[in-house]
Every structure is written in structure tokens, then in C-alpha cells.
Design a binder for these strands. Structure first.
Lengths: 136, 136
DNA sequence: ACGCTTTTGGTACTTTAGTATGAGCCTGTT
DNA sequence: AACAGGCTCATACTAAAGTACCAAAAGCGT
């Protein structure tokens, strides 16, 4: 947020400068009005596109990537997180057990601990909560 | 894609027109150069922002929003889709039943049909498949 | 070596989920 | 009117999922 304001401010300031310079350099010679107009148009068009892309990019960061900090905060162990990922892929406990080369018992234990730590009652709810926490 | 090209083309054309008009109306009276420059700058800035937002919005449709066409293609009924949404929210069959004012039996029927149509074995897998199909 | 956490595994049991099948009710279409 | 599709509900299962409790082996920092 602070960065956006700073960048926007300095950009506006420098554009104002350019604006003033071009205005004064025009006094007396009105045969290049078209050129100046075109330049101004292109510059502001590019600035518009650039600023917009930046702001949208910032928004996207709030939607996409995973948050490693919260995994620690929730005290999720490596194995528990692995199981969580497999659950979100739609696998059953047995399938996860085969994938990770352990027994179904072990997976059940992990899942139970997982549900407690995520404060979920079902694995589907765990998926939903994990995605809200940007853990998945 | 076609729409984007059309809109972009017509916008460019009309802007060219405005550009020409403003140019000719300026001949002889160079005391309003600043105003015209400002207007051109603002207009192109807005156009830049708008066009950029549009193109990014189109990209986002490939990531975010739901695809109503595929829901029809899969022959999912209204009720089945409602149940699918509730499942993805992490609710149990009983909870969904209470929410939709029907019995758990009904929800089970819907879920069963849902799994067949989505070619899933479990509700968690249904969520995963539905999200890949951009149904959720 | 000792304490601590993680990972693993088991038994026994309860609760959800999911399948199969059949059936009644409503609604829009032919 | 007849028919198809969608929604509802029930019974009777089977199969997963989840809980509770316990316990041994492994890994790790002090």
C-alpha cells in the first residue's frame, strides 16, 4: 500500500514536470502540437496500463500463493501437511497410505490430529479452512 | 477474442477521430493548448486503465470464475449443483439437508448422482474435479 | 544419555458416506 | 393424456472416515 502511494505520487509529480516543460517549450511554435499531443497520449496510455497492471498484480498476491508462516503457527508437522495436501487432491486414506508407504492407521492418526489443529469436523471442511488460510 | 479486437479497433478509430477534430479546432488559437493536453492525457490514461482491466479480466476468467456451460454439459441439475457447492463448503450430508430443508436421504441421492456425473469416487475428489472444470 | 516431538502402528468402536433399489409427486413437453 | 426428467424419501446394506487410547521406534537438541 505504502509503496503504491509512493510510486503513484512520484509518477504524478514527474508527469506534471514533463507537462510543464512541454507546455513552455511550445510557446511560440505551434507547428508541433500534433506531435506533442501524440506523445502525451502515448505516455499517459502507457502509465495507465502500467499502474493498472501493478495494482492488479498486488491483488493477485492476496489470492494465490501459500502461506508457510501459518503452517508453523498451526503447529502442523511435515507429515500432517503432506496428508492435508493429499486429502485436498481427493484421495482416500487408503490411497494416501499407499502413496506415502505407511498403513491406513497412520494416516487416520494424522488426519485426526489435522482436524483438531485446523478446527474442522470433516476432511472436506479441513480443505475449505486450509484454503481460506492460504495453506493450500 | 473477436470482441476484444472489435472493441479495441473501434476505440482506436474513435480516438483518432477525436484527435483529428481537436487538432483542427486548435489551428489559430494556441491559448488553450494546456487544456487540450490535459484532456488528451486524462482520456488516454482512462483508456489505458480500462483496456488493461478488460484484458486482465479475460485472463482471470481462465482462472477464477465459474463456467456455466460445463454445468449443462455435465447434465448437472440445479439441486445437484447446489449440493456440490455445499459439499465444497465442507458441510456434512445432514447439515446440507437441514440447510435445503430436505432429508438426508435426498442429499445422499443427489450426492450419488453427482459423483457419477463428475466421475468421482469420493466427495473430496468431486471437489477437486469440479474445481479443475471451473465449476466451483 | 535424557527428554521431547514426530512418526508410526494397532485395536475397538461410532459416525458419515456412499450404493442399490424402488417409489411417489410435480412440471414441462409432445 | 402420456412421458421424461427432476426432486423427494425410504430401506438396507457396504465402505469409508473419524475417535479414543495406547504404545513403540525414530529423530533431535541439550
Amino acid at each position: 500500500m505504502k509503496k503504491t502511494i509512493l510510486i503513484f505520487g512520484s509518477l504524478a509529480f514527474s508527469l506534471l514536470l514533463l507537462f510543464q516543460i512541454s507546455k513552455y517549450s511550445l510557446i511560440g511554435k505551434d507547428f508541433e502540437i500534433e506531435g506533442v499531443l501524440a506523445i502525451v497520449a502515448v505516455v499517459f496510455f502507457i502509465v495507465g496500463v502500467y499502474l493498472n497492471k501493478r495494482s492488479l498484480h498486488t491483488e493477485k498476491r492476496l489470492e494465490g500463493e501459500i502461506d508457510l508462516e501459518k503452517i508453523k503457527a498451526l503447529e502442523l508437522s511435515k507429515r500432517e501437511y503432506e496428508v492435508l495436501v493429499e486429502i485436498s487432491m481427493g484421495y482416500s486414506n487408503k490411497e494416501i497410505a499407499d502413496k506415502l508407504f505407511v498403513t491406513e492407521s497412520t494416516i487416520k492418526t494424522h488426519v485426526s490430529n489435522l482436524l483438531v489443529k485446523l478446527n474442522a469436523k470433516r476432511r472436506t471442511q479441513a480443505i475449505q479452512i486450509a484454503k481460506e488460510l492460504r495453506i493450500l
